[in-house]
Simulated scan of single mutants.
Amino acid sequence: MASQPPVKAAYWPSWTANFPPSDIDTTLFTHIFYAFLMPNNTYKFEIPSSTARELSNFTTTLRRKNPLPKTLYSIGGGGSDSHLFARMASNVVSRQAFITSSIETARRFDFDGMDLDWEFPQSPEEMHNLGELFMEWRQAIVHEANTTRRAPLLLTAAVYFSVDFFLDETYRKFPVWSINQNLDWINAMCYDYHGSWDTSRTGPHAALYDPNSNISTNYGLRSWIRAGLLKSKLVMGLPLYGKTWVLKDPNSHDISSAAVAVGPGDNGVLSYAEIEEFNKKNGAKVEHDLDTISTYSYAGSVWVGYDDVISTTLKIGFAQGLGIRGYFFWALGSDSELKISKQASKAWVIDD
């Protein structure tokens, strides 16, 4: 049995004004996700004319590319209404309304599939309902493909970095049984481990390892595998942005150094392109931390944690060694002249 081709994916945020779909280099990616669409209160997709034009432009533009990537649209996102998804997934009638509309939307705008980014189910019951949703969604996809004699749509989901919410008061775990049976793969969001919610100390927000806790990509990916997820269903998230802090003492600038506030950027977030600009403009010192496999820089009282070409390459090697399916980036438009995207694609070695 031949192994499945690797996933080299990236999300394209629809609000990215300076990086249109025509700028996407499809030699570097196998799958591109349009982010985001949301269903209405009846769990259907009402697409305004302006969004319809954007969706058509997105898929039409990418279908002119060589090589031709697969396109999916992502539903939800970090700022979306988790309660809406919970209500939708709670009974078979609302699930069917959502599923039917999602498939119609994919076909209408010539997408190859759909991605659910529900952040996040809040209880064991909601996790169970998510499993039911995936099962019914896959059944509907297979039925639609058989009826229309078209290739079945892809179905993926963006999920927490770990299989369970071990840090939360309400413990719950993703329905691995349903994911294995019904999804093509999951995108594990292996980032945002540290940030503006904790201004007391610096932290590598996408650390591969953490010597002091289980808040790391290594722990998260392995937790999915230990829970029984097929490795061919697991894709590792990589960030094209960093998190910033203001140091309490500019002379104390290691990882976990005391901080007093978020640093530059929107809520302490800078794109990789902005980080390179900051480092150059301020003569920042760049460090590569081998304990966490992360990169950080500092200049004056500002500290920035991120991934660069070196740490990304090491993570790609780790993912291949683990035997998982591939990687994805959040998000297109944040790279610096596609440096990280190019290196990641090159670093993922494909066996002949």
Results as ranks from 00 to 15, higher is better:
residue 141 I to K: 04
residue 106 A to T: 14
residue 148 T to D: 15
residue 115 D to M: 04
residue 107 R to A: 07
residue 122 Q to V: 04
residue 118 W to F: 15
residue 120 F to W: 13
residue 128 H to T: 14
residue 94 S to H: 10
residue 136 E to L: 15
residue 103 I to K: 10
residue 125 E to K: 05
residue 97 A to V: 05
residue 126 E to P: 11
residue 159 V to F: 10
residue 98 F to W: 14
residue 99 I to L: 02
residue 96 Q to M: 08
residue 98 F to R: 03
residue 153 L to D: 02
residue 151 A to W: 00
residue 162 S to W: 00
residue 97 A to K: 07
residue 129 N to C: 15
residue 121 P to S: 10
residue 91 N to F: 09
residue 91 N to D: 14
residue 158 A to Q: 01
residue 142 V to I: 13
residue 90 S to L: 05
residue 131 G to F: 03
residue 161 F to C: 01
residue 89 A to S: 09
residue 107 R to M: 07
residue 94 S to I: 04
residue 104 E to W: 00
residue 138 R to N: 10
residue 102 S to P: 00
residue 160 Y to R: 06
residue 121 P to Q: 03
residue 128 H to E: 14
residue 91 N to C: 01
residue 97 A to Y: 02
residue 112 D to N: 15
residue 121 P to T: 08
residue 108 R to M: 09
residue 159 V to I: 11
residue 161 F to S: 09
residue 122 Q to K: 12
residue 105 T to F: 00
residue 153 L to F: 02
residue 141 I to Y: 11
residue 126 E to V: 09
residue 147 T to V: 04
residue 150 R to C: 09
residue 109 F to A: 09
residue 127 M to H: 07
residue 161 F to K: 02
residue 157 A to S: 13
residue 94 S to A: 12
residue 131 G to R: 06
residue 113 G to I: 08
residue 103 I to S: 03
residue 154 L to Q: 01
residue 135 M to A: 13
residue 147 T to G: 09
residue 146 N to W: 02
residue 113 G to R: 01
residue 152 P to A: 01
residue 142 V to F: 00
residue 146 N to K: 03
residue 102 S to K: 02
residue 118 W to K: 07
residue 154 L to S: 01
residue 161 F to Y: 05
residue 139 Q to P: 06
residue 108 R to K: 13
residue 125 E to C: 00
residue 121 P to W: 07
residue 137 W to A: 08
residue 158 A to I: 07
residue 156 T to P: 05
residue 119 E to V: 04
residue 161 F to M: 01
residue 148 T to S: 15
residue 120 F to L: 05
residue 159 V to T: 10
residue 98 F to K: 13
residue 109 F to W: 05
residue 116 L to W: 00
residue 131 G to S: 12
